[in-house]
Amino acid sequence: MKAYAAILSARFRTLLQYRAAALAGLACQVFFGLVRVAIYGAFYALSSGPQPMCFAEVVTYIWLGQGLLRMIPMSVDGEVRAMIQSGSVAYELTRPLDLYGLWFTRSVAGLSAPVLLRCLPLFLFAGIFMGMQPPSSWEAALACAAATCCGLLLSAAMVTLLTITLLWTVAGDGITRLALITVWTFSGIVMPLPLFPEWLQPVLKILPFRGLMDTPFRLYLGHIPPGEALPFFLHQLAWTLALVALGRWLLSRGMRRLVVQGG
């Protein structure tokens, strides 16, 4: 456990060094938050019928999304990818650590460091100037925080799984990009999930991606009362466990392949 904590903190420190990236990222997130709000503003201005979310809720949802943006899998771990491409990943086997645990820990750090840095200033800005609402209640805030943590684990499980698939398609951006865009679309970051067509809703409910953003956000908004949150947590955790299990299985197979190949 101590080893993982050390990896987490080392990774964290490395990521914190990237100041320009952090500032530029923050600026970009604010900018595209504004663009998205403008787009929805225009559409809401001309819609007459009732919508599943009111505009104020959409605004809050968008800013929550911009704040937690980097928690969505955006790319696989660049260093691990380089290691796989150069073949030096075999050396990873010589470490006295569980490889899956190692990569998973790296993913957790890589996903949470930028979010921790950026969400606070962004929420402050959006809350003061952009009409982002506070959580609907204390319970909602707590439930949202808990769901965000579960979402982080789910996200890390996805990143790790994608990283592992690189063991098969060496130069393969293909699967990863496709997978990433799927995650991206169905997590709610581009378009709040309640706004998707009605017939898609049952599918969205089952898919794991909702657990990344939509679940915590709707807890925040009070769409899901905190008292009814349990099935949503279970949904997140079940998918996390499933993805971890799948990742572990794939990794053990991939490593066997690697060892045989490397001879």
Partner: peptide, 18 residues
């Protein structure tokens, strides 16, 4: 060459003043 400070706090500080 950027000077890197030790520790997480140092790294955090590095975000503001480098």
């Amino acid at each position: 060459v950027a000077e890197r400070k030790a520790g997480t706090l140092g790294a955090l500080g590095g975000l503001f003043r480098r």
